[in-house]
Amino acid sequence: MTSQTSPAQEDVLLAFSCENDASPATLAEYVRRYPGYAGALADLAVELMIVPLREDACCSPQDATVDRAWETFRSSATSLETKSLGAAGSLIAALPPAEFRALAKRIGVNTLFLVQLRDRIIDATTIPRRFVELLARELSSTVSAVMDDLARPPMVAASERFKSDQKPGADKRIAFADAIGNSDLDDEQQQKLRAFMD
C-alpha cells in the first residue's frame, strides 16, 4: 500500500475510531472526504457510542479461537521471514530499473540516494529504524533482513576494483544525515527524511 492510493476502508475507519470528537460534524466531515465509506462510517459511529457501554464477556487464552489466531500469526510471520530470506543479499539490487525508480518515489527519495542505499555507501548504523521499517514494507521484506542487507560491506563498482592498493569499502561509508544533504534531494524530500531521525 502506498500513500498515493486512496486509503482502504479499514484505514479510514481506524482513523475515525481515534477521533476525540465523535460529533455528527466529525462524521459528516469523514463522509464528505470518503463518500464511498459513508455506510461503514455511520455503523462505526454507532459502535463507538455503544462500545464503552457493553458488558464484558469472557474468553480463555487457551480457547480454540485463540489457538487459531496463534497459528495465523505463526504462518504469517514465517511467510514474511521466508520471503525476505529468499531475497537476502539482493533486496534493492535485485529490482528491475522501473521498480527501482518506483521504489525511490514511494519512499520519497531520488535515485541517487537510493543508489547509495543499494551500494551500502550509507552507514547502516546511522539509518533510523523507522526508515528501515519503511524499506522493509515497501520491499515486502522484514526489518531484520533489510538491516542485514544494509549492514554488509559496501559494493564496489567494477571500474574501481583494480584502481587502489587499499582495501576498498569501509572508509567510503557516509552517515544517513550526510547523505540527505549530499544527494541533490529537494527541500521536501530532505525534510521528510530528516523527520525519520526525530
Partner: peptide, 24 residues
Amino acid sequence: TQGGDRLDIFEVVFDKALAALRVD
C-alpha cells in the same frame, strides 16, 4: 517482522480501534 505504525492507533484506543476492524 516489518515494523511500521499500523498498530499505533490500537495503543491509543484499543477497543474503539477493534470496533473499526469489526465494522470493516
